[in-house]
């Protein structure tokens, strides 16, 4: 089971638009909300209301500051979840066959009944996409909401991953990368979708769209002439005050 399929019929995955993400963490909340009460064991929290809260999340949003060679620094919000790699190192290391990549759609899943909680798959994942649940002792990871996307009990509009469905900025897109005409394939082609840590050879399915270049702030300001000082020389009371204050030691500028 832990042998990776040579090809998968479909390659379901996400496109995450780093240009659009506003870092609101709504995807984190909706992911935890859906996945704690559906596929597999709940996503537990430890000491949730105490001094050192900690818990299992399948999706986390980091924020990075990027300082270009010229110009101002940019703040980039960076959601990160399982990339459903084509050459997933987490699958092949699994000793029990609990981890597998589906032939039909390429989703990487954990069969929790077979998981012994050894943690080796999390060691093998470069992206920190797998977390061992502290209460259940089994490995948790993004399922691409496999229990939503094929769920005929849900209205069609909801048959996409919870994180995509909830994103208020439209920064997350779900689709089939094996289809060159799908929305996600076109977005990747148009915007230069990139892999994370490509040098590790994992061939991630999920792609990240880099932030678009910002407009440079120009020096010319058409309102500047109107803001030039109107009166160079003061008169009357103001002139007297100016002179009086300048006469005080340390008062002159």
């Amino acid at each position: 089971m832990t042998e990776l399929p040579k090809t998968t019929a479909r390659k379901l995955g996400l496109v995450i638009d780093l240009d659009t993400c506003v870092g609101c963490h709504a995807c984190v909340v909706s992911c935890k909300g859906w996945n704690t009460e559906n596929y597999g064991a709940p996503l537990s929290d430890q000491d949730a209301y105490g001094e050192a809260p900690s818990g299992t999340f399948l999706n986390r949003v980091h924020s990075y500051e990027v300082q270009p060679a010229e110009g101002t620094a940019k703040l980039i919000h960076f959601p990160k979840s399982c990339l459903h790699c084509e050459d997933a190192p987490c699958v092949t290391v699994c000793p029990t066959g609990a981890s597998y990549k589906r032939t039909e759609d390429g989703i990487v899943l954990v069969n929790e009944q077979d998981c012994i909680g050894c943690g080796l798959c999390a060691w093998a994942c470069p992206y920190g996409a797998r977390e061992l649940d502290a209460a259940e002792g089994v490995m948790k990871k993004c399922t691409l909401c496999v229990d939503r996307i094929y769920n005929e009990n849900l209205p069609e509009i909801d048959r996409e991953p919870a994180c995509v469905r909830t994103c208020p900025a439209g920064a997350r897109h779900f689709g089939d990368f094996a289809d060159p005409d799908s929305k996600v394939s076109r977005l990747t082609a148009d915007r230069g979708g990139m892999d994370l840590m490509p040098e590790l050879g994992t061939k991630p399915v999920n792609k990240y769209l880099p932030p678009r270049p910002r407009d440079a702030a120009q020096d010319i300001d058409i309102l500047a002439p109107y803001l030039a000082p109107v009166a160079e020389e003061s008169k009357g009371f103001v002139a007297w005050l100016d002179k009086a204050l300048s006469a005080i030691p340390g008062g002159s500028n």
């Binding site: 900690s54 500051e65 990027v66 060691w123 061992l132 994370l196 932030p211």
Partner: peptide
Amino acid sequence: GTATGLGTLGRVKAFEPPHTGTNYLLREF
């Protein structure tokens, strides 16, 4: 830079972690 794919844009610095607390990844790795 390669981890985030943002290295081609400039110098990348971790600005804010996902959560204020710790997690399995930090404890384990």
